[in-house]
Amino acid sequence: MDSPSSGGGGGFGSSPKEAPKSSSLMDSLLGLLRIRVKRGVNLAVRDVRSSDPYVVIKMAKQKLKTRVIKKDVNPQWNEDLTLSISDPDLPIKLTVYDHDTFSKDDKMGDAEFYIKGFVEAMRMDLHGLPAGTVVTREQPSRQNCLAEESCITWTDGKISQDLCLRLRNVECGEVELSLHWIDLPGSKGL
Rank of each mutant, 00 (worst) to 15 (best):
K17R: 15
K17F: 15
E18A: 11
K21M: 14
S24W: 00
S28I: 00
L30R: 10
L30D: 01
G31Q: 02
L32K: 05
L32S: 09
L33R: 05
L33I: 02
R34F: 00
R34M: 03
I35V: 09
N42F: 00
L43I: 02
A44M: 00
R46C: 03
D47F: 03
S50G: 02
S50C: 09
Y54N: 02
I57C: 04
I57T: 07
I57A: 04
K58T: 14
M59Y: 03
L64C: 12
L64S: 11
T66K: 06
I69C: 08
K70W: 07
K70R: 14
K70L: 13
K71A: 13
W77H: 01
D80V: 07
D80Y: 07
D80F: 08
L81K: 11
L83Y: 12
L83T: 14
I85K: 10
P88F: 13
P88Y: 10
L90T: 09
Y97C: 06
D98K: 10
S103E: 15
S103C: 08
D106F: 10
A111N: 03
E112F: 12
Y114N: 10
I115G: 10
I115A: 06
F118I: 00
F118H: 07
A121R: 10
R123E: 15
D125I: 06
H127W: 06
H127F: 04
G128T: 05
G128H: 14
L129D: 07
G132H: 08
G132W: 13
R137K: 15
P140S: 15
Q143T: 13
Q143L: 15
Q143C: 14
N144P: 06
C145A: 13
E148G: 02
S150E: 01
S150V: 01
